[in-house]
Amino acid sequence: MANGRLAQVLERHRAQLSSDWIREQTADGVLRDTRIDEAELRGQCDEFLALLVRATLEGGTNVSGPAFAPVRDMLERMARWRGERGFTPSQTALFVLSLKKPIFSRIRVDFEREPGALFQEIWRATELIDSLALLTTEAFQRGREAVIARQQAEMLELSTPVVKLWEGILALPLIGTLDSARTQTVMETLLQRVVETGSEIVIIDITGVPTVDTLVAQHLLKTVSAARLMGVECIISGVRPQIAQTIVHLGVALSDVITKANLADAFKLALSKRGMGIGARTGGV
């Protein structure tokens, strides 16, 4: 089987390939940085070569086949690991690509007498290494995307604190632009807290919301309506002059909702609705 010849080359010269490969990578300056030491690099190289030899013996050069599953797993792990350490995509892909030269020189030595086979095996090796490098880059990308998604989720949670101001009064200080996904989280967190605390009044403070367009206003109204359905009254506070003008200009119907210019006024109103109040003490200590 023609496929087997590349595998045999790999198997026969494994030790030699490994040291050539590591030399190749050190020449690129990878080892000179502190993110990876030589022992780790040697470990990764040996593991990869061992898996690669077994995979090519069993499954030829079909990298998407079942024989290559361990190789793909290893590359995925390696790429994520490097991504987390701050390696660039090219540095990560070079891990695989730098194997090309050592393999080519081994093939050249072994097939010196048969130019036809030499060319064929070199082509086979090129295809194999290229597709493995592509896999590595994809895995690297996936790792990065997972990090971004996790950070987004964390930011979403960080940005929606529900504060208890007083017995029965909650405040929701909103900061940043409100999009659909955020509004959904805000709504869910708010309503959940309402159930937990048994509050009757919620103050939504939009001082930190830079712009209110029709979409944001609609999201706000949705939150207010959902809270109302649960028997909670909402007060919107922190409406800045420009925002008030925009809301009127856009023709958004905020008339069913109580709005206040600042949080202090809203809190005062909320207290008085609950039959309480704050005032200066007269003749006290």
């Binding site: 309503l191 949705k222 309506s225 959902a226 359905l229």
Partner: peptide, 12 residues
């Protein structure tokens, strides 16, 4: 009385 958060969101 007693509408659940999920129900309130759905209705809205």
């Amino acid at each position: 009385v007693g509408m659940r958060p999920a129900v309130a969101i759905t209705l809205v």
